[in-house]
């Protein structure tokens, strides 16, 4: 079967994605280092980890603010909107494909096209990450940066504590997403195909 190259990732999206990826990796590394700080086994020096985490957090917030209007102004939004149509059965179909068909190198039931960049599982997880996780982690992170803005008490619990707990929980879920996201990217024809695609802008269908 002949290779087909589709231009899926415009320059702005690739730059945004690259910045996002780097920032999230730095945020996860410094976040883990702070959360599991140990004077005997320092991973990243605490004060350095705090500074890096704060700077990367603010940059991630700016990057997210850039992403929103860019996504709305371009056709990129349709991948999220269309990808979520009739999502339940389509997601189940895609899971079955990942578990039983993909290892046998069978073709995807939702091949990548100019119109459908995301398969249903991707559309769902990316939507959750972009619409729920990132706004939550950014909002709680900014609140922790300015703790005087946090309510002192919420339902009998310290507002600061709940904010910090939510921030680390979402941070953890984003870490899990990152691990799965990177792994799924290795499932192209060649392990490196999808990584090349997000750098060059072209997705290769085999």
């Amino acid at each position: 079967m002949a290779e087909e190259k589709i231009y899926l990732y415009p320059v702005w999206l690739r730059i945004w994605h690259g910045i996002n990826a780097l920032l999230i990796i730095f945020l996860i590394a410094t976040g883990i280092s702070m959360q599991y700080a140990n004077p005997e086994y320092p991973f990243i020096r605490f004060d350095l980890a705090v500074s890096i985490h704060n700077i990367c957090g603010v940059l991630l917030a700016i990057n997210y603010v850039i992403f929103l209007p860019s996504n709305l102004a371009t056709s990129n939004r349709r991948y999220y909107v269309d990808g979520l149509k009739n999502i339940g059965p389509r997601m189940m179909r895609m899971m079955r494909y990942y578990l039983t068909e993909q290892p046998k190198k069978k073709p995807s039931p939702f091949p990548v096209t100019k119109e459908n960049k995301f398969n249903p599982l991707q559309a769902m997880t990316y939507s959750i990450v972009m619409v729920i996780f990132l706004p939550l982690v950014i909002t709680t992170g900014l609140a922790l940066l300015f703790p005087e803005t946090i309510a002192k008490e919420v339902f009998g619990y310290s507002g600061l504590f709940l904010t910090a707990l939510l921030h680390s929980a979402i941070g953890f879920l984003i870490s899990i997403f990152l691990i799965v996201h990177i792994y799924v990217c290795t499932t192209g024809k060649k392990i490196t195909d999808n990584f090349k695609g997000i750098i060059t802008g072209y997705h290769t269908n085999h």
Binding site: M34, S158, F161, A164, L165, A169, F172
Partner: peptide, 20 residues
């Protein structure tokens, strides 16, 4: 400490650690 503040690194939760 949680009654008054949240100290990063000092206020981990054992159960959440295990769950994660």
């Amino acid at each position: 400490i949680l009654n008054d503040a949240y100290v990063i690194g000092a206020n981990r939760n054992h159960f959440l650690n295990v769950a994660s």
